[in-house]
Computed example of a mutant assay.
Amino acid sequence: MVIDKSFYMGLAIAEAWKYQGLTYPNPAVGCCVVGEKGEILAVNAHQKAGEPHAEVLALRDAYFKLTNNDEILQLQSSFEIHSYLIKNHNNIFHNIFVYTTLEPCAHIGKTPSCASLLSTLKVKKVYVGSRDFHKEASCGNEMMQKVGIEVIENVLKEQCDVLLEPFKKFQTSRFVFFKWAQRLSGTTDGGVISSKDSRVNVHQMRDVCDLLVIGGNTVRLDRPTLDARLVNGKAPDVLIVSRQKEFDTTIPLFQVPNRKVFIADDFSICQNYHNIMIEGSAKMFELSKDIVDMYLCYLAPTFGGLKGFEGIDEKFTILHTRETKEDLILWMKRE
Rank of each mutant, 00 (worst) to 15 (best):
Q271W: 05
S242I: 04
P301T: 06
K260T: 05
V256N: 08
D293Q: 07
E286W: 15
N272W: 02
Y298S: 08
K289E: 14
D266N: 13
Q255I: 11
V261C: 07
I269Y: 10
K260L: 09
V241D: 03
Q244K: 12
A264N: 11
I291F: 10
M294S: 08
P257E: 06
S288L: 14
E279M: 13
I269E: 00
R229E: 07
G280T: 00
L296R: 07
L296S: 11
L230K: 12
Y295T: 05
Y298V: 07
I263H: 00
G233R: 04
P252S: 02
E279I: 15
D237T: 03
R243E: 10
S281F: 14
M277Y: 11
A228H: 05
G233M: 06
A282K: 09
G233N: 05
C270M: 13
F285L: 15
D266L: 11
A300F: 10
Y298N: 11
P301Q: 01
V256H: 08
I251R: 13
F285W: 06
R229W: 07
D237G: 06
P252I: 11
L253F: 01
F262T: 05
E279D: 09
S281T: 14
A235G: 14
E246L: 08
P301N: 07
E246G: 09
V241M: 12
C270W: 03
Y273D: 03
Q271T: 12
L296N: 14
F262D: 02
N232I: 05
I278A: 01
I263S: 03
P252R: 06
E246D: 14
K234F: 09
R229H: 09
S288I: 13
A235L: 04
Y298C: 11
V238P: 06
D237Y: 02
P301E: 05
D248H: 08
K245S: 13
F247H: 08
S288F: 04
Q255E: 11
I278P: 02
